[in-house]
């Protein structure tokens, strides 16, 4: 996988929505991820395969179930490449300000 795979995987609102759902609740089955989404099971399966190929989602077997986990490491690699250590506190403050002002908190 490459940075291109990561950006391509992220360039789709449905896939970002799946990552948001894993971010709020990690380790979900395909069935759980499909609940309340306006997507067919086949579409979700396809999107998860693209996210897994980009290493943004990893899976673990748990008994008969396959659980999906968000893997933020490739996104962190991209962030480190351009952001660097000195800007981190300032960016965190700006990002917090934006979330507070816009009233949306994805944490």
């Amino acid at each position: 996988m490459s940075d291109d795979d990561v950006f391509r995987a992220l360039a789709d609102a449905s896939r970002r929505q799946l990552l948001d759902r894993l971010h709020s609740e990690n380790g979900q089955t395909l069935g759980e991820l499909c609940q309340g989404l306006g997507m067919t099971r086949q579409a979700v399966t396809k999107h998860l395969a693209i996210l897994e190929a980009a290493n943004l989602v990893s899976t673990r077997r748990h008994g008969r179930e396959k659980l999906h986990f968000i893997n933020p490491v490739p996104i962190n690699d991209i962030a480190e490449r351009w952001i660097g250590k000195f800007e981190r506190p300032r960016l965190a403050a700006l990002s917090k300000l934006k979330r507070t002002l816009e009233g949306e908190d994805h944490d």
Binding site: E25, N26, T29, S58, L67, F69, N71, P72
Partner: peptide, 14 residues
């Protein structure tokens, strides 16, 4: 996570 009562994170890098 909903499937078990555990909290788990999985991190993968190549």
């Amino acid at each position: 996570m909903t499937s078990t009562v555990a909290s788990t994170f999985v991190y993968v890098t190549f």
